[in-house]
């Protein structure tokens, strides 16, 4: 599959209070961004587990983006610090496995609709550059 045909699929985890609101704001403001993202709503980014990220990648997602409130702003006080720790450890392992560039963590406040759209645009481009379809590229050819 050539780079021009490849459309990556990105699973995004969004917390109800900040990042999901930012995504809503992008919508209300009619800021356009590529349709490659699929959003999973949770109450707090601290609900997201490394297992969920692994599942997304194993089931066919080309990349995963975890989003939440900026540190210090978590609606549940300290949830996002746990998210950061879980992501940091997961990234350590994924880097070893050669998959580190597919998972990202980014904070969005409820007012950052434009920034979210911009982030999606550049993330999609980056994944297109680096990854030509996870499924087709590895010798084992998936599971």
């Amino acid at each position: 599959m050539s780079k021009s045909e490849f459309e990556p699929r990105i699973v995004v985890f969004a917390c109800n209070w900040c990042s999901y609101a930012a995504m809503d704001l992008a919508g209300t403001s009619r800021i356009q961004y590529p349709p490659n993202v699929r959003i999973v709503r949770v109450m707090c980014s601290s609900r997201v587990t490394p297992e969920m990220v692994l599942t997304a990648l194993a089931e066919g997602a080309d990349a995963v983006l975890i989003t939440g409130c900026h540190p210090g702003d978590c609606h549940y006080l300290v949830g996002n610090y746990k998210t950061l720790a879980r992501y940091t450890l997961l990234k350590n392992v994924l880097d070893e496995l050669g998959l580190g560039d597919r998972v990202r963590l980014e904070w969005f406040s409820a007012g950052e609709g434009e920034r979210f759209a911009q982030y999606v645009r550049s993330f999609v481009e980056e994944i297109k550059e680096r990854v030509v379809n996870l499924q087709a590229s590895t010798p084992e050819g998936g599971r």
Binding site: L54, L57, A58, L97, G98, L99, T138, E140, G142
Partner: peptide, 11 residues
């Protein structure tokens, strides 16, 4: 047994 085993970039 890791679900990602098919995707690991071996070193």
């Amino acid at each position: 047994s890791c679900p990602l085993r098919g995707l690991i970039k071996r070193k």
